[in-house]
């Protein structure tokens, strides 16, 4: 097999298109799948509702907040299950607190993702204009939301890629991998992390195999 060759066909903040050559289809597809399900990203996972007089139930509010994509820095945060803090509530390294405190005083208002105030300025909603809930005059929503890293296989809110497509390129054994990001992190980072996670998994597998073989 020839050495793998990569050519960037197109690149923007949200999207990257790569032409892969000399890579097996199964490997390329694994990278595609990992972009969806294994690359961690930030999403609100736990909320403490202090007040909710809006028309939406707590559980719907929670669901809507969970779906808001948050900017993710994988260097500074770790998955809670990998964190050494051992604290069920999490620590600085594995969770971010966002606060939402909104009241419709004089006129009805729409609470949007931008109303979420994060303790870490870097971890904030990708788009500040996502509507969360409409409030009638006198209604208010007050809550603490805890975001953490998670993986797409656990819940769709942690999927960093909105699209991850592997198609056949021109010529034998040539594939095109196109990844579109939800904005949590640059598209190219998703691909890089995906390969990283795949390698990590393979290493774990290797270790396991060696251990079992040694017995």
């Amino acid at each position: 097999m020839t050495a793998p060759k990569v050519k960037v066909l197109q690149e923007s903040d949200d999207e990257i298109s790569l032409q892969l050559e000399g890579v097996d289809r199964s490997y390329a597809n694994a990278v595609r799948r990992f972009c969806i399900s294994e690359v961690p990203s930030m999403a609100i996972d736990d909320i403490v509702i202090l007040e909710n007089s809006s028309v939406l139930y707590d559980e719907i509010l929670a669901h809507r907040l969970g779906m808001v994509p948050l900017r993710t820095d994988l260097e500074r945060y770790v998955l809670p299950e990998r964190c050494d803090c051992g604290n069920p509530l999490g620590c600085q390294k594995c969770r971010v607190l966002l606060v939402l405190d909104a009241t419709a005083k004089e006129r009805p208002r729409t609470v949007v993702s931008g109303d979420l105030v994060s303790e870490d300025r870097e971890v904030c909603p990708v788009n500040p204009n996502i509507p969360i809930v409409k409030l009638a005059v006198g209604q208010s929503v007050k809550l603490e939301a805890y975001a953490r890293l998670g993986r797409g296989k656990e819940h769709a809110k942690w999927q960093p890629a909105t699209a991850s497509i592997l198609t056949e390129g021109k010529g034998e054994g040539v594939f095109v991998l196109k990844v579109e990001t939800s904005g949590t992190m640059p598209a190219k980072e998703i691909v890089a992390r995906s390969i990283e996670k795949l390698e990590e998994k393979l290493k774990e597998l290797q270790k396991e195999v060696e251990e079992k073989a040694a017995q």
Binding site: R32, R33, I36, S37, G152, K153, A156, Q159, T162, A163, S164, I165, T167, K178, E180
Partner: peptide, 12 residues
Amino acid sequence: PQEDMPYTADGV
């Protein structure tokens, strides 16, 4: 799971 579902060339 989404990654196991079929997809179109546009990623749908």
